[in-house]
Simulated scan of single mutants.
Amino acid sequence: MIRLEGLTKTWPGATGAAVADITLEVPEGTSCALIGPSGSGKTTTLRLVNRLVEPSAGRVLIAGKDALRQDPVRLRRHIGYVIQEVGLFPHRSVAENVATVPGLLGWDATRARARVAEVLEMVGLSPARFADRRPHQLSGGERQRVGVARALAGDPPVLLMDEPFGAVDPLRRRQLQDEVLRLLRQLGKTVLVVTHDVAEAMRLGDAVAVLRDGRLVQHAPPAELLARPADGFVAGFLGTDRALTRLGLFPAGAARREEAAPGPPLPPEATLRDALAEMLARGSRAVPLAEGGAVTLDAILDLAA
C-alpha cells in the first residue's frame, strides 16, 4: 500500500508549490495512474515516493511505514523504478543490468542468475538470446522490457513507472502495455504510474488521479472519471472523445448477443471500442466474437447508456 498524506514540495525560490497538499492512497496490489498537463507535478509526486526528491511537508507511507524515517538508499532498493529513457548501463550486458538490485541486496551469484533468467522470461525476452547483449543491440521496446525486468528483479512490493512506454512506437505500445499490465496483476504489485496519455492511464490504472498546478483535482476509477468529471478542467483534459475512451475499458464480450454476424471474428482481447471501429470499417451493425455470438451496435448503445 502507498499512502500520501498532505504531501508538499516547494522548490527554493519558487513562488508556489510544485506539489501542494496531496493526499492519496493506492491499495496493495492495485495501480494508480497520475495524469495532468505538463508542469502539474506528476513526476515530482512520483519521485517524492522513493525520495529522489525530498518533500517539504507531509508523509509517504509504504506498507504502513513512514518512508521519511528510512534510509533512502535502502528504501529505493525495495521500490522498483521504470523511466521512459530506461537508463540501462550501456557498458553492461542485459543480464548485468537486470542483476543490479539483486547485487545491491547481497544475493549470491547463483540466486541472482536464476532471478535474472526468471524476470527476462516474464517480460518475454529469452535469456539465451538476450542475456549477453548490450543495450545498443536492442530495439526500443526490448530496452523497455529490460527496464521493467530490472525493476522487478529484487521482487519489490512497490513499482513506480514514469512515462514507461513513451519511447516505444505506437504499434508496439499497446502490446507492451497489455503484457506489463498482465504481469503486474499476476505478481500483485502496488503500482504508481505517470503518463500524459489519457487512454494509457485508463488502461493501466485501477484508479486515475488528475493533477493540476501541483494539486489533486480528482481521484476515481477510470469508468467513473470518464462518466463524471469533477469540473470543466478535468472534462477538457480527458477530451471530447471520453465516451469512446470509456468504451475501450470494456471487453467486447460485455455486449455479446446470441446471434450470427458475417466476417472475421474479433479477437478475445478486443474492446467495445474495437468492436465499434470494426463496424464502421465493415459498414455493418454487428461483428462476430471469437467465443461465439456477436456484438451489435444496439447492444453497445444500450451498455453506453
Rank of each mutant, 00 (worst) to 15 (best):
P268A: 08
A275K: 00
V101I: 13
A260N: 04
R77Y: 07
R115L: 05
L4F: 06
P72F: 07
R182Q: 15
Q70F: 02
R256N: 14
L61G: 08
T10Y: 13
I62H: 06
L34H: 13
P127M: 11
T110I: 15
A277I: 14
Q70P: 12
A235W: 09
K9N: 05
L272T: 03
L192T: 08
V116K: 05
P90S: 09
E118W: 09
D66I: 00
A117G: 14
V49G: 03
V94S: 02
T195D: 11
A95L: 00
K42R: 08
L204I: 06
L247R: 00
G6E: 10
E200T: 00
A20E: 15
G106P: 00
L120P: 07
L225P: 02
G124P: 08
S56R: 12
L276M: 12
D206M: 05
V210S: 07
R134H: 14
V49L: 03
R51N: 06
L183Q: 07
R145H: 12
Q218S: 10
V119P: 12
L276D: 04
Q84P: 01
L61V: 03
G293Q: 01
F237C: 07
E200C: 00
Q84H: 01
Q175P: 01
M202E: 03
P265E: 04
S31Y: 11
G80A: 06
F250K: 00
P55E: 03
D206I: 02
K42C: 09
L88W: 04
P267M: 07
I300F: 09
M279P: 06
P164H: 11
Q175D: 11
A261N: 03
G39D: 09
E163S: 03
G16V: 08
R129L: 14
V193S: 08
G214W: 01
A275S: 05
L4N: 14
T245W: 00
E291K: 11
R257L: 13
R145W: 11
A261M: 04
V101L: 03
R3N: 13
P37G: 10
L181D: 15
G64V: 04
E25Y: 00
V148K: 08
G87M: 02
A167S: 13
G36I: 06
G103N: 11
G253R: 14
P264G: 08
K9E: 09
N50R: 00
A20R: 15
F89L: 12
P157I: 00
